[in-house]
């Protein structure tokens, strides 16, 4: 019996073998276990997938299917139990801790469900965080951040604190923070879950407009079936396995 005999049924067979040279993310054999008391729970059962640049990829699935776990592993913030992840050709879990932190800073933008803006600094400063972390002078970083806020139609809110902004506005600041340093990969976990339908839609339209470029990939985890039409590609996760991979939702969903 070989390793491949143990692979689960529903895998992305097109991706087996080497990584496509232009792949933004190339994930191979991703397994992740969590310790729950005495027992070990396997949340991801060996996932192989490629994420291509220039596309907006949705990861959908029921609660607990492993979506967050998968993208956390793909963006370098959660170690897989088994398997490897290459992001733009770099085998990220072979990097040292510091190298990985710097790799994320250079290459990845994050958008969280709860925005996670720093409450005590204004919108421009929040959006400028990655630039400042990269060592840019604060004033210069704020200027760049403000330009992006303009583009996201909240230029007039740049000097406000997060708690003075609406949910949709805060998520735009978060989008600005994710994009300000022009990362090649943008990862969003439920970016619209905390927003009402219309602001959710507007945020997604905007994201589609600014986060997708020919050399940039965007992965979005979502439950929100109102926005499925914006996806270029949809991966469906069920119990830690990819059960569908296509440009539309499978029938019956």
């Amino acid at each position: 019996m070989t390793m491949s005999d143990l692979q689960p049924q529903h895998m992305d067979t097109t991706a087996i073998g080497g990584c496509a040279p232009d792949a933004a993310i190339c994930a191979r054999g991703i397994v992740r276990d969590f310790q729950a008391g005495q027992s070990t729970i396997r949340v991801l059962h060996g996932i192989d997938t490629d994420i291509k640049p220039g596309e907006m990829t949705f990861v959908v699935g029921e609660s607990g299917s492993g979506k967050t776990t998968l993208i956390s592993i793909m963006c370098g913030i959660l170690w897989p139990t088994e398997g490897e992840v290459k992001v733009f050709g770099t085998d990220i879990y072979k990097l040292s801790d510091t190298q990985l932190v710097n790799f994320r800073l250079e290459n990845i933008g994050f958008i969280f469900q709860q925005y996670n803006l720093i409450p005590s600094i204004d919108a421009a400063a929040n959006a400028a965080v990655p630039l400042i972390a990269k060592g840019m002078a604060v004033e210069e970083a704020r200027e760049k951040a403000k330009q992006l806020l303009e583009k996201l139609n909240i230029g007039d809110q740049a000097e406000k604190l997060p708690n003075q902004l609406s949910g949709g506005q805060q998520q735009r600041v978060a989008i600005a923070r994710a994009l300000v340093h022009e990362p090649r990969l943008v990862v969003c976990d439920e970016p619209t879950a905390a927003l009402d339908a219309s602001s959710g839609r507007r945020v997604m339209d905007l994201l589609r407009e600014v986060a997708v470029a020919h050399d940039r990939a965007c992965i979005i985890v979502t439950h929100d079936n109102r926005i499925f039409d914006l996806a270029d590609r949809i991966l469906v996760l069920e119990d830690g396995l990819v059960t569908h991979d296509g440009s539309d939702m499978p029938d019956g969903h």
Binding site: T98, V101, R104, Q114, P130
Partner: peptide
């Protein structure tokens, strides 16, 4: 602020 600190760490602040 633990979530914000977590976000900073994810973004790549050491």
């Amino acid at each position: 602020n633990i979530k914000q600190f977590g976000a900073l760490k994810a973004i790549g602040v050491t």
